[in-house]
Amino acid sequence: MISAVVVKEAGRRRSSASTGRGALRVVERNVLAYRRMWLAFVSGLFEPLLYLLSIGIGVGGLVGKVPGPGGQPIPYDQFVAPGLMAAAAMNGAVLDTTFNFFFKFKYAHTYDAMLATPLEVGDIARGELTWALLRGAIYSGAFLLTMVLLGLVGSWWAVLALPAAALIAFGFAGAGIAATTYMRSWTDFDFVNLALIPMFLFAATFFPLSQYPEGLQWVVRCTPLYQGVALERGLTTGQLTWTMLLNIAYLVILGAVGLRIATRRLRVLLQP
């Protein structure tokens, strides 16, 4: 079946790039591959949920209320849940665009194999980005559902929290692929953890910005994850502000610039 489709498409190689169909083939390949590793995929769902139960509810009971996005006090579990949702989108997107991308690129030679088909470099970059975006969105979607079931969602605006999570995943997936094209060995991936763990802990995920001194608040406001946290927290609590448009713009630019750099770099790296 699949080979028939590929043969049919081989005749219109140029058009596949413009319609994005080639990218969908890359996504399809990842879906097929993950069917054999479904447990590894599903286990990623649990991490944010366990954090929600432990920190959000376990420790949250000791915290009581904290100032929400509009300054009004909200229960701690409602405060931390959107932060964890943004982090889930980030983690889902970064895993597949850094570690897994590097393995496929350097060791499994998956992309060299792909280029022997009608697929192009642009298809690979867009396909992997789309896949990472889907993975981040699936993790965030499951998390959002749990939030609804636990009664942690305070507004109908929360229906937009899922597209917002996809946008967060887009931003981080673009940045992730672009960064990975500069990686030389596994040791360089320490920088990925060096960026992700502090952001996860300090980008207003677990406690509000007001806990920081003024100067540090601005540093935190500039981190990519903070954009996602602010966006999700505004939507799930129903406290919308105009600055959320800035958060959106930041993530769109991050993803688009990342994708552009990645495509250009991959063209040099993959085609001798």
Binding site: I55, V59, L62, V63, G64, K65, V66, Y76, T187, D190, N193, L194, I197, P198, L201, F202, F206, F207, Q211
Partner: peptide, 29 residues
């Protein structure tokens, strides 16, 4: 290569949870 994972990362958790979140816990209960 192992310093971040073994030493710095646990200390970041300590700073975030012990100081940032801890301040909220102390105020709350």
């Amino acid at each position: 290569a192992s310093v971040f994972q073994a030493t710095i990362s646990p200390l970041l958790f300590l700073a975030a949870m012990g100081l940032g979140l801890g301040d909220l816990v102390n105020k709350g209960s």
